[in-house]
């Protein structure tokens, strides 16, 4: 999956028009980044990559780059 496709997946999770997420957004600025979006993000990551993200680690993320880094960290085997 390309970075752009991942951003479009985030658009879908956050119920935003495709193309909204550009990759440098702060999550606090996105109204729909809430508990529903957190569980959707965990489920989507599981479906796409087979990983089970730690809920506290997802909640610690403050930006889209943080979310991307968390997924990539799991895929590289670096996350607990």
């Amino acid at each position: 999956m390309t970075r752009q496709e991942l951003y479009e997946t985030l658009d879908d999770i956050l119920e935003l028009p495709i193309g909204t997420i550009q990759g440098d957004e702060r999550l606090a600025d996105i109204k729909t980044w809430d508990s529903l979006a957190v569980v959707s993000f965990i489920a989507t990551a599981n479906g796409l990559f087979g990983v089970i993200l730690s809920p506290p680690r997802v909640r610690e993320c403050t930006s889209v780059p943080d979310l991307v880094a968390l997924v990539e960290d799991h895929l590289s085997g670096g996350a607990a």
Partner: peptide, 12 residues
Amino acid sequence: MNGAEVLAFALQ
């Protein structure tokens, strides 16, 4: 209820 933890538990 912590819904994210419930989901993670179910997936695991």
